[in-house]
């Protein structure tokens, strides 16, 4: 912190923009939270406090099914992409062949492809292969899309991990798999958790891919929300939004607490933002 003090005084413009930015960021969120407690159906005038929309939500089997479906999709996608993305990160980081670079480029393509393209393409490949569209297809598409995030984050951490430690383990008699399991993987845990949380959160709220790859019921939550807002939304949706906000806030706080749990210097948030490789 001493470093910051030596800098020039705070740049006024930046501070003002930041304050305005936070206001802009949170106004609609407060509106959502506020109107989720409105006692009337209106979304523009608050007439009185009521929890009826939460009651509605918890009695709406279709919405609950969607919520469960989205949680399942996010969980399976996070685990699946963690496994594949970590394998890929290792392969790419340790195999420095031309073929490795080609594979590396391919896996990063989803990051530079607009989601609508990925969505359309996934729809075509699934229907073409005769798969029944449903939660399975959504999960397949989401994993494909998320592998790149895991790879980028884990690979970054792996690059900063001194290979000598692993070599030392092998000099002490470990097999390559043992040195991987006992030495390298534990060091990667914060990165794994961070990327798992990131993928979970991204997939849970992902609309475009889910929209194109979903089929039979239950619909993922964002798809259900989309279909209800086209024709005017019920405040039960605001209740859902408020609950989702709470859940994601908890997830982020968990991510912030991670470094304390693992006694590492840097926050796992740094992993997500890329600040780790300083």
């Amino acid at each position: 912190m001493a470093r910051a003090k030596k800098l020039e005084r705070k740049p006024l413009v930046a501070v003002v923009v930041t304050v305005l930015f936070f206001a802009w960021l949170y106004v609609p969120i407060f509106a959502v939270a506020l109107f989720s407690f409105n006692d009337k159906k209106s979304l523009s005038a608050f007439s009185g406090f009521s929890t009826r929309w939460y009651v509605d939500f918890f009695h709406n089997e279709a919405l609950l099914e969607s919520l469960r479906a989205s949680l399942l999709i996010a969980l399976v996608s996070a685990v699946g992409s963690l496994v594949l993305g970590t394998m890929l990160a290792f392969g790419l980081e340790r195999v420095r062949s031309r073929r490795g670079r080609v594979v590396g480029a391919i896996t990063l393509l989803p990051l530079v492809t607009p989601e609508i393209v990925t969505g359309v393409a996934a729809l075509l490949v699934f229907t073409g292969a005769g798969l029944k569209l449903g939660l399975d297809t959504v999960i397949l598409a989401e994993i494909t899309f998320s592998i790149a995030y895991v790879t980028v984050i884990v690979r970054g951490r792996l690059a900063s991990f001194p290979l000598e430690v692993e070599e030392a383990a092998r000099d002490l008699g470990c097999t390559p798999w043992q040195s991987l399991r006992l030495v390298t993987l534990p060091a990667l845990v914060p990165a794994l958790i961070a990327s798992g949380l990131l993928v979970f959160a991204l997939v849970f709220d992902d609309f475009v891919l889910a929209f194109f790859t979903t089929g039979v019921d239950p619909q993922p939550l964002p798809v259900r929300i989309y279909s209800s807002i086209r024709f005017g939304v019920s405040p039960a949706i605001n209740a859902v939004g408020t609950l989702m906000l709470l859940v994601s806030a908890l997830l982020i706080v968990a991510a912030l607490m991670l470094p304390r749990l693992f006694k590492s210097r840097s926050s796992s948030l740094d992993l997500i933002t890329g600040g780790e490789r300083r």
Partner: peptide
């Protein structure tokens, strides 16, 4: 009553055609 909803006629038809 076990409730499901559709958001378009295309969606309703697709679900039934898929064997739901």
């Amino acid at each position: 009553i076990i409730e499901s909803n559709f958001d378009s006629m295309e969606g309703m038809y697709a679900n039934i055609a898929a064997g739901n």
